[in-house]
Amino acid sequence: MNIPKDLLYTKDHEWVRIEGDLAVVGITDFAQGELGDIVFVQLPEKGSRIAQGQSLGSIEAVKAVADVYSPLSGEVAEVNAALNDKPELMNQEPYGGGWVVKIRTANLAAEKAALLNAAAYADLTTA
């Protein structure tokens, strides 16, 4: 299972890549594997404000539906419109073309402590 060392994670199987005050968010390789074929992604609107732990959108797979929870508070700066036509990108490139949103973070320094590093996340998925 692919768990890149340079990313941060949540126990809900989202990943975060910090780029300045922007945070790129997606779901992990483990999560996409558990969900199976993703057929639709409900994305938030650009500009909407979200709090850490709040739902960012939902992912519909053939077998189940799951929410994506925001790892950090802030404003939705960008959504991955490519997922509207190709939701399967989340299966194919969970850490690349399958990213979900970019968040302009509001409280990064304080909230970052709640996130897991790659080793801690790896423990979670192999427990």
Partner: peptide, 25 residues
């Protein structure tokens, strides 16, 4: 931001408890 009710929500983490996703169990 779209609205979602609290009911029927499934965290990705809960998938481990889904009858079709319980390999770890």
């Amino acid at each position: 931001m779209f609205e979602l009710t609290d009911r029927d929500r499934l965290r990705l983490a809960d998938l481990l408890g889904n009858p079709y996703n319980i390999s770890s169990q």
